[in-house]
Write a protein that binds this DNA or RNA. Structure first.
Lengths: 243, 243
DNA sequence: TTATTATTGTAACAAATTGATACAATAATA
DNA sequence: TATTATTGTATCAATTTGTTACAATAATAA
């Protein structure tokens, strides 16, 4: 995890959180034909990490995830799913965490649970890239979008693996649930939608079959002709109708 | 949760476990055309609960689940999946837990994390009914199979909801993954397999289509004619071939 | 103004999958 | 030896998916 520190670490009331437990969020966005995720860069370290946080003693687990999402994107009502709990001992990396704390000029006793092993609940979120306002936390320099195919080489603990598993889950969920729309703006063309599917699934799809399938689902409302400056037929715009 | 107490509560080294965190296991079995799960009955209370336990500080989360499964069934190499983390505050029920502890003649301070809110990782397991040896723990009278359609009326905390969600997950996983076989003995007839699917999905399936589909998957090996005492054609026996 | 170009929307047909019916092949029992 | 119940599978219908083809644009170029 990263984040959850709007105050200096030494000022944080650690007792307000569930010890040994965290959550990490893989926040997906889609822009220029690329699937992207949000990563934080810790101050004075070469370490990148997923947005994450701790669960308050008086807070529902899923609400903690929503809170973290809101803190990093300024968005509410985000599409959000638990996908796996990462609980191996091998993911523990005390020296990395200590490095971050020291780099921020703080001190924590070695016996503190923050430096012990913890278990993290993995969530993935799908958001409208154009609406999010990526916001770093107190111990991070930046909160930025990264192309899923071009991630930073050094990441905290097992965050590489968490991302891999999130993508895998997204791929299998894409057809079963009708969730792709959460990654697009309110209106989009059939080409946009197909491009999104192709990017997530990592393979080309046949245009007529894709269009026929999407329209047969009855979840798309056709709006109007798009006014493009392209030298060809203007595509229809669609919007998703929930239900 | 229930279980994890092979010693008296007062003798347990609570510091050896991750505080505020538990796991609950919905252990499915199949017998006489019924889908069943294992439940524990607490001593001197009318409360039933899922097998569960805590995670040792030096133990992988998934290994803790395997350990709990082994303690309650004497089985290893069980098919096991995480399916959801139950982390709402509303699931907390201190008086129920206190009732169980008191009923066992123990004492725990109200401030102990055991009586505070906790978060539980839900697992479901698929086992061969004929191979399991249901084994109660130190604070339970019994560990018994219950038909999924006929569960006890009073259950611990949100265990009813955990079971419902486990069944829902099993139903959607059944076709995507090839996991049904874990609920059957080594050899079975096509009728057995169809009955299992019909029971889990709660709907009848057409026999020729089912048989054709299962055979086309290439994961069944036909063994020999079954020697039944039935007044009709003897069915083939099959076994599952992994891979 | 009239081709040209690139792309969209959809028709049309083929291939594959799934749904449904039918029936011969048993393995006891009457 | 007929009867009965059930299994294994063939057969055809219905539906879904894969593929090709082509008319309908919306700019741009001639």
């Amino acid at each position: 995890m990263a984040g959850n520190s709007e105050q200096k670490a030494s000022q944080i009331d650690w007792a307000a959180f569930m010890p040994g437990l965290a959550l990490d969020a893989v926040i997906f966005g889609y822009h220029n034909g690329q699937l992207k995720i949000l990563l934080l860069e810790y101050k004075n370290t070469p370490l990148f990490a997923l947005p994450g946080g701790f669960i308050q003693q008086d807070e529902d687990l899923n609400n903690a995830a929503k809170r973290v999402l809101h803190e990093r994107t300024a968005l509410s009502n985000i599409y959000l799913e638990q996908f796996y709990v990462f609980g191996d001992l091998s993911r523990h990396n005390a020296s990395q965490l200590k490095q971050i704390i020291v780099a921020n000029g703080h001190f924590i006793d070695d016996s503190h649970w923050l430096l012990q092993r913890f278990i993290s609940v993995g969530y993935y979120a799908l958001i409208d890239f154009t609406k999010a306002i990526p916001t770093p936390d107190a111990i991070s320099d930046s909160c930025q979008w990264f192309d899923i195919t071009n991630l930073p080489p050094v990441m905290l603990e097992d965050h590489q693996e968490i991302i891999r598993k999130a993508l895998e889950t997204l791929q299998t969920d894409l057809d079963r649930k009708l969730i792709g729309f959460n990654l697009l703006p309110e209106t989009f063309t059939m080409g946009d939608l197909q491009g999104l599917y192709e990017t997530i699934l990592g393979k080309p799809l046949l245009r007529p079959a894709f269009q026929r399938k999407m329209l047969s689902l009855g979840i798309l409302e056709r709006i109007a002709k798009k006014q493009t400056g392209m030298a060809h037929k203007a595509p229809y715009l669609y919007k998703f109708i929930g239900g």
